[in-house]
Amino acid sequence: MGIWKYALLVFLGGCSYGVISSFVKLGYGDGFGIGDLTGSQYLLGAIMLWIITIFVPKIRLSVKQWLILLISGMPMGLTGFLYNKSLGYVDASFAIILLLQFTWISIILQYIFDKKIPDRKSIIATAIILCGSVLASGFLSSELTFSLVGIGWGLLSALSFATFIYVSGRASITIHPIYKSAIMTTGATLLVFILLPPVFLLNGAFADGLLKYGLLIGFFGSLVPPLLFNIGMPKVGSGLGTILSASELPTAILMSTIVLHEVVTLSQWTGVAVILFGIAYPNFQRRRLSSHT
């Protein structure tokens, strides 16, 4: 499998994460709270992953390795918690812009922990994606609700997501990606349950319709992304992986038209095109350099 195929997996992982915002919004509309939706998402996502692990090879892990993988998955759960918190204070379009700040935060994390100075094409691609995100979110054409608390939650979700992407790019424990994803998602679930006690398990929320949202959000938000990131990130690296993961916003815009029937303006579609160009830019540069060698 060439590196471009691994890049495609990371791109699809970002797309999958972008799907869940519409389902979360529908869940809020049906009266479910952040604890119901976030908790059921990670719990059912973990259960689905553990079912799949029945069919993949597993190795015996030490207690230390288990703890490392569990802790490595916690930023994923923290991202869901923080992002959903921000949605309670600011409009969804603005919250998405805040989450997209993970692109430049990831560059800073790589510099701090890996002493890796970002190359010119990564900086240019990040700038293009951020400009496109402002257009795609509708930030310039709508009246948004501003809240310092909401901005704080949103920026923290960006930091958490950048941390998760960075961790996904580390391949220190070599095990099957599905097995690794199951353990990491379990760690995310444990953290979410600490932050949001799972009262939905006792109050009959599953029978009232939460189950369908938990399965949908769990599949697209807690099963597919960690699995594809764990397969692709070690191959493409967290630098390119960060850029590819920005596919989340265009997907969120597309899903809002399909699922929520929201009107998307020409400027928003222009922003989507700009983001896709920013994602593709480093690959264009890489092909151009390889063609001259």
Rank of each mutant, 00 (worst) to 15 (best):
S141R: 00
L196E: 14
I175L: 12
I173A: 06
S168A: 15
D119T: 09
G150C: 12
T174E: 14
V167S: 08
G154Q: 07
S168C: 12
I96A: 14
A127K: 03
M184V: 01
S160E: 11
F219T: 13
G138A: 06
S147R: 10
S122C: 00
I105A: 04
S137L: 02
E143V: 11
S86F: 02
L210F: 05
L216W: 06
L99P: 06
I217E: 09
F161G: 01
L195G: 10
A188M: 06
V192P: 10
L140V: 14
A171L: 05
Y111D: 01
F161P: 00
V149F: 06
I175W: 06
S106C: 10
A158S: 12
A162H: 09
L98Q: 07
S141L: 01
H176E: 14
K212Q: 13
I123E: 05
F113D: 11
I124N: 00
G152E: 07
F113K: 14
G218Y: 12
I112N: 12
P177V: 11
G88D: 13
I105W: 03
L155R: 06
A92V: 15
G209D: 06
W104Q: 02
A136R: 01
K116P: 09
L99G: 06
P118D: 10
G154A: 07
C131W: 08
A95G: 15
F161T: 05
I123T: 08
A136E: 04
V199D: 14
F220L: 03
I178R: 05
G152S: 11
Q110K: 12
S133M: 01
K116T: 10
G132A: 01
I97D: 01
G88V: 05
D208F: 00
D91G: 15
I194Q: 06
S93D: 13
L196H: 04
W153S: 00
G187Y: 02
R120L: 14
C131N: 08
I112L: 15
L195E: 13
L155A: 10
I97V: 15
R170P: 05
T189V: 07
L216S: 13
I112V: 15
L87E: 04
Y111A: 15
S122G: 04
L202E: 12
L191K: 01
L130N: 12
A188S: 15
R120H: 07
G169F: 07
W104D: 00
G187Q: 02
I175H: 03
Q110F: 01
H176L: 10
I194F: 14
A171N: 15
